[in-house]
Structures are given as structure tokens and as C-alpha cells.
Simulated assay, not measured.
Amino acid sequence: MNPSTFNTFLKQLSWKTHSVLSPNIKPSAYVPINLSQTNPQLNTFNIASSSDWEKFIQSYLKSHQAKVAYGGYLEQRNIYKRSGYFNPSSNNMERNIHLGVDFWLDAGEAIYAPLDATIHSFNNNTNYGDYGPTIILKHTIENQVFFTLYGHLSLESIKGIKQGDIIQQGEAFASLGTAEVNGDYAPHLHFQIIRDIADYKGDYPGVCSKKNLDKFKSNCPDPNVLLNL
């Protein structure tokens, strides 16, 4: 299935997809947020500090009378400059283009399966600025197989689970972690769709370089198509 056809497939699924956050959060409580390097507001605080980020997000939500700030697909971000994990010695391989959608809200909030799934894999990715606890779900729908990744979870989310566990659509299967465990970020969910996961287990690049953008964009379509944000 080529990328265009797969996007059409996701759009058709979107009408029966469950929210990845609590269904009790009203659509009016969501607000888009721009965290790209072009946003001058990000020059007003220390973007290397998770506590400063949390204050910024909470202020943003309060000013918009919202509970969730969301966005970020294909945003080019400066926040990754703080970690050598995203910045190899070759400058043209700097990874700063975001491949998923982020949902910024309080730690401890439950995460729900958008579709029926099984647990493909999970891991605690502990590099500085990495995902922290991560779960990848495998979806098999209409003979199509694809994957969804959930990053920056709580440690409790990956305890007592195993590969192959069945997760029902709408089931709360994880929760958001704090900065102490989630890679040192303000609490948020990184949600990403992956068509071909190759040999990855419990991890998959959520940020890519400009040089590799075409490849990753093809393999990781816009989650907005599925989630109807």
C-alpha cells in the first residue's frame, strides 16, 4: 500500500477511532500549540529545563482555558539541541524534525488504545531527552498491519505487561510519566504511527534529520489523519 493509499485507509478508520486521551476531555479543552524553532515565545525561558517547560505549558493551557495542548507533526524544534543523543558529529545528521503528535497535559493521565491491538514491544529508553518508558502497539485491520508508538509514559505503564498482550479499543493501558522518568520533559504523550517497524523493539525514531525526512515522512504519516484532531 503506497503512502497516499495508506492515508486514505487511516482517514476511513478515523470515524471509529477512540481518543488516545480520556473521552471525558471535551474537544473544546484541546488547543493547538506551536513548539517549532520559529516561535519567539520559546526564547523567553530556558528550553533545556523541564521545569521551565512545564511552567510554560501550564501557563499556555491556563491562558487558553484548555486542558490539553497538542501538535508538532514535522515541526523543526530547537529543544533537541540540548542532548548529544540527537546531535551526532555530522551536522547534516542533526535530528530535529518531529515525527509524531505531542499531547501536553498532566502527569498521571491515562492513555487509551485508539483501535484494537496487541502489545508489539516496550522498553524504558533512558538516553537524555529520549522517550523514557515506551509502548508500541500492533494493529491488524482489514489485512493491514501498522503500529502506534506511545512515548514518555510512567514506569508503571511497562510493569506487568508482555509482548502479545491483547489491548481492546478504548482500553486505558498506560499513563503519562513525570520529568524524572520521561526523558526529562514536561509531561506529555508522544504519539506516532509507523507503517513498517523493521527490527525495532520498544523504540523507533521520533525525530529525524532533514536529510532523512522523505523516508521517515513516508513511513510515519500524520497522526492527525487518524485521530481527527
Rank of each mutant, 00 (worst) to 15 (best):
F86N: 10
F86K: 09
F86P: 09
N87R: 10
N87W: 08
N87T: 10
P88C: 13
P88S: 14
P88G: 14
S89A: 14
S89I: 15
S90W: 15
N92L: 07
N92P: 02
N92I: 02
M93L: 11
M93W: 01
M93R: 03
M93C: 07
M93Y: 02
M93Q: 05
E94M: 15
R95A: 13
R95E: 09
R95D: 07
R95Y: 09
R95V: 10
R95F: 10
N96V: 11
N96S: 13
N96R: 13
I97Q: 03
I97A: 09
H98K: 12
L99Y: 06
L99R: 09
L99N: 06
L99G: 04
G100P: 00
V101A: 14
V101Y: 14
D102G: 07
D102A: 08
D102P: 06
F103L: 02
W104Y: 12
L105H: 08
L105C: 11
L105N: 10
D106C: 07
A107C: 04
A107W: 07
A107V: 02
A107R: 07
G108D: 09
G108C: 09
E109K: 10
E109F: 06
E109D: 10
E109L: 09
E109I: 08
A110H: 10
A110N: 13
I111Y: 05
I111K: 04
I111P: 02
I111R: 02
Y112K: 05
Y112W: 08
Y112M: 05
Y112A: 05
A113I: 04
A113E: 07
P114I: 03
P114V: 03
P114H: 01
P114R: 01
P114D: 03
L115P: 04
L115W: 01
L115R: 01
L115T: 03
L115I: 03
D116T: 04
D116L: 07
A117G: 00
A117N: 01
A117K: 00
A117H: 00
T118S: 01
T118L: 00
T118V: 02
T118P: 00
I119H: 02
I119G: 03
I119Y: 03
H120F: 06
H120S: 06
H120A: 06
H120Q: 06
S121R: 06
S121A: 08
S121Y: 07
S121I: 08
S121W: 07
S121L: 10
S121K: 03
F122V: 05
F122T: 06
N123Q: 10
N124H: 13
N124V: 12
N125T: 01
N125G: 01
N125P: 01
T126L: 14
T126H: 14
T126Y: 09
T126I: 15
N127H: 12
N127M: 13
N127F: 11
